[in-house]
């Protein structure tokens, strides 16, 4: 059991989460990708905490758990609201803050 194995796992998990956020258009998959990235950070913190034999890394991971819970509550409420407003979860449909008025319906 080596710390480099855990580093590799955390990096791969982060890469997969980033790929999910940046390449999918389903809002729910984007949310799950963010969760995967936060979990990768947690794994990295736990590994460093274990290797340095100090509890501070675990405490930061615990604070990130609270962040995960807050993000879940907010993102899922936002998901319900967005689905209610346009009856879709396609992130390409929610562009009315990014584009001008005349391009809005053509997207």
């Amino acid at each position: 059991m080596n710390s480099e194995n855990f580093f590799i796992l955390a990096i791969i998990l982060f890469m997969i989460g980033l790929a999910g956020v940046s390449s999918r258009r389903n809002l729910f998959v984007i949310y799950l990708g963010i969760e995967l990235m936060l979990s990768a950070v947690n794994l990295l913190l736990a590994t460093i905490s274990r290797a340095t034999q100090q509890g501070s890394g675990s405490v930061i991971a615990l604070l990130i758990f609270a962040l995960i819970a807050a993000e879940a509550a907010l993102f899922l409420a936002m998901l319900v609201q967005l689905y209610r407003s346009k009856r879709t979860l396609d992130s390409g449909r929610f562009t009315h803050l990014a584009q001008e008025e005349k391009y809005r319906d053509a997207a």
Partner: peptide, 16 residues
């Protein structure tokens, strides 16, 4: 009601 993503696996592999 979901996004139409026929090429999602290819895009994911490319991004990875």
């Amino acid at each position: 009601n979901q996004a139409y993503e026929p090429n999602r696996v290819r895009i994911i592999i490319g991004v990875l």
